[in-house]
Design a protein around this nucleic acid. Structure first.
Lengths: 126, 126
DNA sequence: AAGAATATATCGGCTCCCGATATATTCAGC
DNA sequence: GCTGAATATATCGGGAGCCGATATATTCTT
């Protein structure tokens, strides 16, 4: 799952949205950090549709402008949930290791060559 | 920051490692979920080095085999920390929204009268 | 002697993201 | 009335990045 796909699924998780709405929503939910481009969006939308993670919900004409709404499928919700889990696990693992690295700094001056406890990871988190 | 780069940085967060060791470590820390390929690794290593997020720590010859160890720079640690934060925020936002979507399923009319009701999520997290 | 594991590295293909571009309507400002 | 910004759709070419295959070499296991 690509970053862009993840954010599109997230934007659609609470309610169906149309393309342009997804763009604004992604920006908003990421607090401005992610600014997805139109060129990215439609490719993602096509791929997610082909994978049946989203479907075309309905088409509306609002003030003369066409709005094409997409929504998550059950499979899409499950995929998003699983991906969120993976991301959280990865973030957690990274933070844990950063802390470990600070305790026993990498190429410690002087002490190089004596790793002591062989290798102290793999504690295994959830 | 790409997924592969994130996992390489994470593998190096606690101590310097050589290429092949990174491969095994990524698999271990992700509990088998991520299996990075050699073809991916060296491109990532080159890019991270160019960006000065990692540096060549030392070269050892162990049992006739060359081992090229890399370690994080301060900038690399900071980048990993920031990325972990972003990932955690994204995962948190996704889960929150999945829950919201379950409360107000699909194309539910009614409650969505006011546009932009400032649903500010992703507020705080670890 | 053969095969797996360790350890390095490169290359072509393919997927995917982005910037640019195109079209069309509505609304605010001048 | 005209212009520009916002809304809303869509496509295309370039480039970045991941993967599978491939290559080389040593050590360990069978």
């Amino acid at each position: 799952m690509t970053q862009a796909a993840f954010f599109v699924l997230t934007a659609l998780a609470d309610q169906p949205r149309h393309g342009y709405g997804i763009l604004r929503e992604v920006e908003e939910l990421s607090e401005g950090a992610v600014q997805m481009r139109v060129g990215t969006l439609y490719g993602v939308l096509d791929r997610l549709t082909a994978d049946e993670l989203i479907v075309l919900d309905r088409e509306e004409v609002q003030q003369g402008r066409l709005r094409r709404y997409y929504r998550l499928t059950d499979e899409g919700t499950a995929a998003l949930d699983a991906e969120a889990e993976r991301l959280a696990a990865g973030a957690s693992a990274a933070k844990k290791r950063i802390a470990e690295g600070r305790r026993t700094p990498g190429s410690a001056p002087g002490t190089t060559g004596a790793p002591g406890t062989g290798h102290g990871l793999a504690g295994g988190l959830a």
